[in-house]
Simulated assay, not measured.
Amino acid sequence: MSDVEKENQLLMVSQVMATRQTILPKRLIEPGPSAVEIEKLFLAASTAPDHDLINPWRFLVIPAHKREDLGELFVQALSERDPSATDEQLEQARDKARRSPLLMVLIVDAAKGDPEIDMHERVLSAGCAVQNFMLLANAMGYGTGLTSGKGLKAQSFRSGLQLNRSEHAICFLNVGTVSSRKPFKPRPEAHQFVQVWGD
């Protein structure tokens, strides 16, 4: 690869990173990624660092025909947490399952593979997989956003997703076409998060 080609590649990758922005699920609309694009996105995720190749994480895709079931899990989780939740609050919880064309749950297994590889390292690997996925989605022209919440830890929610005892639902990954964007928030500068030991 020539110096010019390297410079062009560097510029392209830097632009993809710099333009990535979190998009709320309600602003992600059809069309979502095609089957071919989704395959490429998962391939990008698979390049994440993975100590001893234990693959401690997975994506649980929520297909269209399961969205209403997911909505009921959101309702059950809220009811467990707040028995006094109003009908409006329950409907808002249910509506979360209807947003974004492509919706997945990121799950990390604390027990898979070598037990010496601790949970922090497993979650870090999963985070790298998600970032790779989101950056390629951004390069394809899609918006992405991560969402979480207390509902992910509710027993009814865990049971509904058939998670085993060692699995942790970390967050939702939402993907789709961006209907509207908020202004970009300023990124932190390097001096705000870089420190030299001894200084």
Rank of each mutant, 00 (worst) to 15 (best):
residue 37 E to I: 09
residue 78 L to M: 12
residue 39 E to H: 12
residue 61 V to T: 12
residue 49 P to A: 11
residue 77 A to K: 06
residue 39 E to V: 08
residue 37 E to G: 04
residue 58 R to F: 01
residue 56 P to K: 11
residue 38 I to G: 02
residue 70 L to R: 03
residue 78 L to P: 03
residue 58 R to T: 04
residue 85 A to H: 03
residue 52 D to Q: 15
residue 54 I to R: 12
residue 82 D to L: 07
residue 65 H to L: 14
residue 45 A to W: 04
residue 74 F to S: 09
residue 65 H to T: 13
residue 73 L to N: 04
residue 37 E to M: 01
residue 67 R to K: 05
residue 64 A to P: 09
residue 69 D to C: 04
residue 41 L to F: 06
residue 64 A to F: 14
residue 62 I to V: 13
residue 84 S to L: 05
residue 63 P to Y: 08
residue 80 E to Y: 06
residue 53 L to H: 15
residue 53 L to N: 15
residue 81 R to G: 00
residue 42 F to H: 05
residue 63 P to L: 12
residue 43 L to M: 13
residue 40 K to W: 08
residue 47 T to S: 15
residue 42 F to L: 04
residue 60 L to R: 01
residue 49 P to C: 11
residue 65 H to D: 15
residue 69 D to R: 08
residue 75 V to G: 00
residue 72 E to S: 12
residue 68 E to R: 06
residue 81 R to A: 03
residue 79 S to H: 01
residue 74 F to W: 08
residue 84 S to V: 07
residue 68 E to A: 10
residue 48 A to Y: 10
residue 55 N to C: 13
residue 47 T to W: 15
residue 43 L to Q: 14
residue 40 K to Q: 15
residue 72 E to A: 11
residue 63 P to F: 09
residue 73 L to I: 09
residue 53 L to G: 14
residue 84 S to G: 03
residue 41 L to K: 05
residue 86 T to L: 08
residue 74 F to G: 06
residue 43 L to S: 14
residue 73 L to F: 10
residue 39 E to S: 14
residue 37 E to Y: 00
residue 43 L to I: 11
residue 48 A to I: 09
residue 72 E to T: 11
residue 59 F to N: 01
residue 80 E to A: 02
residue 55 N to R: 14
residue 75 V to M: 01
residue 80 E to H: 03
residue 59 F to S: 05
